[in-house]
Amino acid sequence: MEQLKVNLCGIELDNPVIPASGTFGYGYEFAELYDINCLGTFSFKGTTKDPRFGNPTPRIAECTAGMINAVGLQNPGVEKVISHELPLLKKCFHKPVMANVSGFSVEDYAYTCEKLDKEEQVGWLEVNVSCPNVHGGGMSFGTSPEAAAEVTRAVKAVTTKPVIIKLSPNVTDIVSIAKACEEAGADGISLINTMLGMRIDLNRRRPVIANTMGGFSGSAIFPVAVRMVYQVASAVKIPVVGMGGVSSAEDVIEMMMAGATAVEVGAANLVNPYICRDIVSDLPRVMEKYRINNLKEIIGGVQLWGKM
């Protein structure tokens, strides 16, 4: 359907719906459930230079309208992703995929991105400078404009494909970080990663999560995500991918009105494995309800009260 198409950094998506990294594996588990080619694309599991087991368990906590995870970037490492995961992914997904990358040093990011950039299935590199669950890496690169810009420059220097920097909401001023990435050459910004959270088990008087804290996601964070997408999209010229608590076609449209060109769906996949397929098929109905002819027209289309 032409009305659902959007253009993300020069690549056309059939629709703006993108399962978020860490909630969709490398795609093939979900391909057993439905034809995942109905998606715009998806962002695969965060990949690092070396294999990682991640954090000790328990890694998951239930929250009101959401969850906390502290997985800690478990992944088989970039070599194995290229040799084992991508060939499996290729069998079930025939569109460009978003490669999500994390690291523990600027060199790590550049190394992993350079490798994945050469893979023909990879359409975009989504560079995660916002993982709250690893020490000495991840989020620490996304909490200062200088560090985020440094990672952006290093990745851009060794890649040819569009680079989208994934930002953390756990900062004082997300706009300054987004602008620093844009100036450093980023082709897009995605946000928000999870919010740092914590739960305590009253019986045991211990954190529910073995790592004490973790990333809070799910519908509870949606308003925060809409606000930050709005702030960033209003301040940068490059495309913004919005995410955070999205779980319906209405949420996708709200994110787009706030300024998102495409929209990622995260935690909701873990509760309803069919949610992204269902959102895609529900979009035309919701567009009709709100008299939207073409999704491209509503990107950043929110009209503020004072300016109506």
């Binding site: 969709f24 594996g25 588990e29 991640g54 368990t57 890694r59 998951i60 995870n69 997985v71 873990l270």
Partner: peptide, 17 residues
Amino acid sequence: EERMGCGFGACMGCSCK
């Protein structure tokens, strides 16, 4: 037994060595 996120292999919440 382990605390799970999805229960079907997507989230890596219940991994063990």
